[in-house]
């Protein structure tokens, strides 16, 4: 099996706020991420697809096809958007790295029909990221 990873970047704003909690609890749990006017990040998304190279093309999947899927499903939905208010799949969820990575997995998994989605890694900053993968696959990516 070969793993193929494509990286994209998008910029978006968000804030962490749970309406079921008091203002004081929101501040205690979410800290400065609870600022009511939000803040933003340059997100980096790494999408890893697993599969066997096609004997004719030598490809696990056509990178152009993957690029188009990422453009349509992720960039158009999330780039230069407010994740709390403009991304339907995140409505009612706190837009943490964990939740955004899970939504991205759910959006991409049915669209990737050559090979199979192996891992989604979403960086909110170089020092913070979330991985989403099948239980048992251990998130391992050969680098």
């Amino acid at each position: 099996m070969v793993l193929l990873t494509r990286k994209i970047e998008f910029a978006a704003s968000h804030l962490y706020h749970n309406p079921n909690l008091s203002a004081a609890e929101n501040r205690r749990i979410f800290g400065k991420c609870n600022n009511p006017h939000g803040h933003g990040h340059n997100y980096t998304l790494e999408v890893t697809v697993e599969g066997e190279p096609d004997p004719v093309t030598g490809m696990v999947l056509d990178l152009k096809a993957l690029k188009e899927i990422l453009e349509r499903e992720i960039m158009q939905r999330m780039d230069h958007r407010h994740l709390n208010y403009e991304v339907a799949e995140l409505a009612g969820k706190i837009p943490t790295c964990e939740n955004i990575a899970t939504v991205i997995w759910q959006l991409l998994e049915p669209k990737i029909t050559q090979g199979r989605l192996h891992r989604v890694r979403l960086y909110e900053s170089p020092d913070l990221f979330a991985d989403c993968y099948r239980d048992g696959a251990n998130g391992a990516v050969k680098s």
Partner: peptide, 14 residues
């Protein structure tokens, strides 16, 4: 395609 998903949080320190 109904495998359970696992979510992991990664953090870097120096």
């Amino acid at each position: 395609m109904s495998d359970a998903l696992k979510i992991a949080l990664g953090r870097r320190y120096r």
